[in-house]
Design a protein around this nucleic acid. Structure first.
Length: 409
DNA sequence: AAGCCTTACAACCGCGGGCTG
DNA sequence: GCAGCCCGCGGTTGTAAGGCT
């Protein structure tokens, strides 16, 4: 794995960028785009390596950057995301438009870590410090306590006055209606955020371990584990089986993850996957997980907290192609998602299901806005809809909504 | 006023992975 | 299969500014 060849070259400037350099780079990229970064400095007349130019552009010069201090909502979101994603700054940054991974990393290291400690929360595990200290003494016991299916990892009782409890409190609702049977899942991410990454991995392992087990997993309530049928491959990817079945039981009973599934924030940060493909979604937060394999159609619904209308949003996705999909790419790339969605055919949905994206917004959601940073966009969309744009292509609208919502969550 | 310390931010460094010839 | 190039990521370091003594 070679380093940039330009890094070896001499006579390259290092250190802080001068305004002149900034201007040169900005002008060049605005005019020509960056193309190959290694050639940018030469073309722009800069005595820098391409890597340095790239960094400067990404972290400082990009026009879409949101300069200035982080809002409380942003900080809360970062903490939430860090609890789930750990030090994956780029993934965290992807959920905060206008913020760079570097910026977030710096904020975390200089500010948020300290704040959490002051609130008695370990910034690494997101557990109460006292518990972490105790946990050091009996690690094996701690490991057992991570058995999320048993609920033992619900360390933080939001009703307590533990420091940080309020900070973490968040409730999301994912309404789903599958095959005519409506169900909704209420996610209170407050509990699970106290679960460490390790606990999530354990959770994943548990699910993976049931992959060949046809027995229902009663530990997670409504999860139709008997329908989970995927195999974990050695490269950290999961391949879904050919048995695309809903993630949730198809009952009209509300799916209350808050009470029945202690580890929910992982899910709260993903589209509620509704086929076996989406069973990999919890795995999405495994450190080793960068992509998942989709052999079947899949679909997700979403909660649009800004809209109140109920609209049918049938979404069918490709089924036949055994296609590898990197979900972050879909989440972050509306075009990719649109292409994927538009390539699907209704006929392909032997197992396809219709998702009605209803709107449920928990009234006590003090932080929902922070979790859905693009409410403004959604409101704008709502306004557009009210202005008679409902007649536009339904599929396209759903794609837009999906990307708007999940592109940042 | 000067020196030291802390903080926040910018930038660098090293590495891994994807791609290509 | 291999080597080189390139990109992106995360950890670390450097530095300027502000606060404190």
């Amino acid at each position: 794995m070679g380093r940039h060849s330009c890094c070896y070259k001499q006579k390259l400037r290092k250190g802080l960028w001068s305004p002149e350099e900034d201007e040169k780079l900005l002008r060049h990229i605005t005019k020509y785009g960056h193309g190959c970064w290694s050639s940018v400095p030469k073309q722009a007349g800069l005595q820098r390596c391409g890597k340095s130019c790239r960094l400067r552009w990404i972290n400082y010069l990009r026009p879409d950057l949101k300069r200035g201090t982080f809002s409380q909502e942003e900080e809360n979101l970062i903490i939430e995301l860090h609890a789930v994603l750990g030090n994956r700054w780029s993934q965290i940054a992807a959920q905060l438009p206008g913020r760079t991974d570097n910026e977030i990393k710096n904020l975390w290291n200089s500010c948020l870590k300290k704040k959490l400690r002051q609130r008695g929360i370990d910034p690494v595990t997101h557990k109460p410090l006292s518990e972490v200290e105790n946990g050091e003494d009996n690690k094996s016991q701690h490991t057992n306590s991570l058995d999320m299916a048993s609920g033992a990892s619900s360390d933080l009782n939001l009703n307590t006055d533990k420091p940080g409890a309020v900070l973490y409190e968040q409730r999301l609702v994912y309404p789903l209606e599958m095959e005519g049977c409506s169900s909704s899942m209420t996610i209170n991410s407050g509990n699970n955020l106290m679960a460490s990454t390790a606990s999530k991995d354990l959770f994943i392992d548990r699910f993976a371990s049931t992959s060949t087990n046809s027995q229902p997993c009663d530990l997670v309530g409504h999860f139709p584990i008997q329908q989970f049928n995927y195999a974990s491959s050695s490269n950290g990817r999961l391949s879904s089986s050919l048995n695309p079945t809903p993630w949730f039981t198809q009952t009209s009973k509300p799916f209350d993850i808050n009470s029945e599934f202690p580890s929910s924030s992982m899910s709260s940060l993903l589209p509620p996957l509704t086929s076996s493909s989406f069973i990999s979604s919890p795995v999405g937060f495994s450190p080793s997980m960068a992509s998942f394999t989709v052999n079947n159609n899949f679909a997700w619904g979403m909660a649009d907290c800004s809209t109140s209308e109920k609209e049918e949003a049938p979404i069918h996705l490709m089924e036949s192609q055994a296609e590898e999909v990197k979900w972050p790419e879909y989440l972050n790339n509306p075009l990719l998602m649109a292409a994927a969605l538009q390539n699907q055919t209704p006929q392909s949905g032997l197992y396809s299901m219709e998702i009605k994206s209803e709107t449920h917004c928990s009234a006590d959601n003090s932080l929902s806005n922070s979790m859905w940073p693009h409410n403004q966009q959604q409101q704008q969309q709502q306004q557009q809809q009210q202005e008679g744009l409902q007649n536009s292509d339904m599929c396209g609208k759903d794609i837009q909504r999906l990307t708007t919502t999940y592109g940042h969550v």
